[in-house]
Amino acid sequence: MTALETPPRESVAGGGFAAVAKGRLQQLLAFASLIAIFAFFSVASPFFFTYGNFTAILFSTVVIGTLAIGTTFVIITGGIDLAVGTGMALCAVMSGVFIVNMDLPLVVGLVATVLFGGMMGLINGINIALLKIPPFIATLAMMLVAEGLALVVSDSAPIYFSEEPSYTKISTGNLIPGVEFPNAVLVLIVVAVIAGVLLTKTVLGRYTYSIGSNEEATALSGIDVRKWKIAIYAFAGLFTGLAGIMISARLGSAQPATGMGYELQAIAAVVIGGTSLSGGKGSILGTLIGALIISTLNNGLQIMSIPQEWQNVILGCVILVAVYTDILRKKEA
């Protein structure tokens, strides 16, 4: 799991042991919060601490988690991606078009869907890096385009995968024999490990941090920032495509009108996980913990029968606390 941790490379702080310790501590904090929340709910409700409920929490983390992993890359570059929610809905619809309407073989349809997500990311990247449209506006526009296209392509009606039982198995099946453990969670774990390795061990990850820390310096050192930015957005888009598959596989249908608001939850997960919105810092493990904190809170508060009005209030407080610690950290640096 080392690949998932914050990399020792902190270009501004100059690296070294102190920086490593600092990154670890932030993650430790998020992790400690998760443990505290778990402990709290376990004491508060007799229905919380059960195997079935744990898998329910993990299951409900998959879609937001997948989106949040892609968003982590974008946010580390100092950007933002508002298009992942409705983009996911469009990808889900495209998956329906590929697999149900066009009757493509399952694997081909899946790959095409993920690549479609990548293509949306590519367009975002081009708009941001070449046309110099601020990420907030470029992806806001893409959010609207995707929302509309999902309805246009699907004719505003859900596409059902009833004829493709193997499609829903991607999410709801149990690959591990004899254990009730949804495949969707396995997918999230595998994808997180891959993303973690790419972020910490490859040139793509290195430039992601580097652009986020200091874009100008990165450019001056001879790196084609524009090219890499486009690459990073396109790469992040792949996760939007995958999330489209995961949500439609879980529901057994591609719901064209869904997805709005998921982008904010993904951003929240990333921020709670210690990734800085000003770029240059962050980790996949932190993001996963952030996503888990959100889904654990949602689950636990409902299990405690806390009125729904309060659930969002509490979630909002958690985000505030997370961002505040981020600010404290920066002040110190």
Partner: peptide
């Protein structure tokens, strides 16, 4: 502070909700 705030907000709202929900999670 973060930890304390979190725990506080949780317990505060938890009690609140428990009463409003008519007996909490049980």
């Amino acid at each position: 502070m973060a930890g304390a705030a979190l725990a506080l907000s949780l317990t505060a709202c938890g009690e609140d909700g428990g009463n409003a929900g008519g007996g909490g999670g049980g």
